[in-house]
Design a binder for these strands. Structure first.
Lengths: 203, 203
DNA sequence: GTGATTTAGTAACGATGATTATCGAAACGT
DNA sequence: ACGTTTCGATAATCATCGTTACTAAATCAC
């Protein structure tokens, strides 16, 4: 019983997500949100709670709808394929929408006031989850012989994440898709090959 | 003629720089600045102009005092030494001060409101200058035979910058110095070797 | 239909943002 | 020593921030 909602909650959340993606958590005002979603301030509060709660819901949706290439990547047969799929998918996502380039999980809240500390930490945690999944995948690859014994899965995971972060920063700075793909390719050129007589130079 | 300033302008600028370093441009309030510098609001305005002008002065000082390893790096004899020096110096800077980790040129303003757009662009420009210097250095290395003919200096420069950005993000997330050094090492492991019979596997 | 209940929308709230006007105090040149 | 000039500090200004009462409209159960 009671009145029905006139607006679509999913659409409103998508609109908020795009604004957060472009301006970050603290850079986004409720005026921005209402203009983008076409609904009034109190409607946001009744539907999503306060601003922090809204951002967290937007972040969840972001991972569901846009970072869906992560589980796909982790299932690929080789560690190198996993890394390549992640890097090129990220380039695509970072440059797909001209009005909100880069990655929400990064510049949603990199630095900010003390009030934004909870969401900054939430983004750190979210990224840490992705890195842990990647590390575990690489540990499996090492156990399977896909990665050489001298390789360090946690370092490879951190390295791939660093390149992903760096490309997101560059995408936000306006870098072209082609340039970012070249960066990804360069990152992959260092990928540890499995032990073979002439594949690598002696240490 | 007239009264002398009671506070040291350089110290006040350093204090402001550290706050910007930690909280970013928009995340920093004048209350933060006055508390850090120990001087009142109007003193900041009379000495540095408005907030944007203050941030630009802080950014200039940042490059002078903290990014002084860039010119040193560019003068090293080989492209690989240049990249290595940049990466490891950045790791050191990004983790040297526990209360303001990472890099001001990055999270000073990655995303933000429309008001912050000028400073965001200023940081993009500043980073582009560094990348251009690096690209020119690598072009010289290629001309000198230090880099193989098949290498692409602009890609190598963008790649090194991407890793630098990514490590800054990770430093701000609390990554240890050792972990970042491992990331830098992994990035360097891909460095194009000069053509020699056994140094690299055939394409 | 009628009443209960939930939403939409207007408007206001207190707090804080950046930015100055103002005035007394201090330090210079002459 | 004195007038001028600059600085330091209190406080006020205007805008905007996130958040919420409050009222009118709309939907359900009965």
């Amino acid at each position: 019983m009671g009145r029905h909602r006139e607006f679509d909650v999913g659409e409103a959340l998508d609109a908020a997500l795009c604004v957060f993606w472009r301006k970050g958590y603290e850079g986004t005002s409720y005026t921005d949100l209402t203009e983008a979603a076409g609904i009034d301030r109190p409607a946001f509060y009744s539907a999503f709670g306060n601003k922090e709660s809204l951002f967290r819901k937007a972040l969840d949706r972001y991972y569901e709808r846009y970072m869906d290439y992560i589980p796909d990547a982790l299932e690929l047969p080789t560690a190198r394929a996993v890394a390549a799929h992640l890097l090129y998918s990220a380039v695509d996502l970072n440059t797909r929408y001209p009005d909100h380039t880069g990655c929400l999980a990064l510049h949603g809240a990199l630095a900010g006031s003390d009030d934004a500390e909870p969401v900054r930490q939430a983004l750190i945690d979210a990224r840490a989850v992705g890195e842990a999944q990647l590390r575990e995948r690489f540990e499996r690859a090492k156990a399977e012989g896909d990665l050489p014994q001298r390789s360090r899965p946690e370092v490879l995971a951190a390295f791939v994440m660093a390149v992903l972060h760096g490309m997101a920063v560059q995408a936000k700075a306006g870098f072209s898709r082609a340039k970012l793909e070249a960066v990804a390719e360069q990152a992959l050129s260092a990928w540890p090959a499995n032990d073979s007589p002439i594949a690598r130079s002696p240490p």
